[in-house]
Amino acid sequence: MHDLQPDFEQLRQACQRMRKNILKMTHRAKGGHPGGCLSAIDILGVLYLEIMRIKPDNPTWEGRDYFFLSKGHAVPALYAVLAECGYIQAEELAAFREMGSRLPAYPSNEDTPGVDMASGSLGQGLSIANGVALAAKLNGTEQRAYVMLGDGELHEGQIWEAMLSSAHYKLDNVCAIVDYNRLQLDGPLDEVKSLGDLRAKWEAFAWNVIEIDGHNLEEIYNAFLAAAEYKGKPTVILANTIKGKGVSFMEDEVGWHAAGPSDEELEKAIEELS
């Protein structure tokens, strides 16, 4: 964790840069889930640029904090932030979804520097975070495990198994973030299968719950600090977000779950972000 207050204006500019990269990637690949990337990117930006102890020039540094993108379909957002940090070059982003490239359609630890775990099959990330957090406790290190979950992903039963495990083992070095954008592939979450009172559910599972605006960089930053300081329980950050955030015609539109923008749409979106 960095000691100085971040320069939030600089951070905002970095997030806008990453938004543009996400749009370029999903435009070129004609897909790749831009909606859920744009809802997640501010959180990823704060996490990678201000919170996590990492060494981009030494991705497998033993003392690193861990991040797992359990909602693996938002991987363009992860690649954008990896490029912003310097794990990969920005030029390489053009290889997203290309056969044999280091940037496949879902996270792959075997392919991409800075990616610690494969995902793409929903529901698996929190268990992974618990495992690495338990290993850190066993080793007596201060390492932390961050995992981003999709809201629709919470339909998966494994998440709830893992929620019990994190609480049982009092994994205060685990921090889960729910990208709560309220839209999934088939439509609004509340129409497909409602999560009900999500805050009450996490609290009932003995988690420390922090609710924030997932696009307010200062709130995101403070939530991560508070999570790190909270002892005895794992913390979940329920981040209220907007799918497609930052691009007027994409915001809150379910159609942008998977599809990439056309030439004209890309141009318009980049213009809005500039």
């Binding site: 990330g125 992974i128 618990n130 495992g131 690495v132 338990l134 290993a135 080793n139 494994q158």
Partner: peptide
């Protein structure tokens, strides 16, 4: 999954 996390942590 927890086992896989342990493996990432060097166990």
């Amino acid at each position: 999954g927890t086992g896989a996390g342990f493996a990432i942590g060097g166990k």
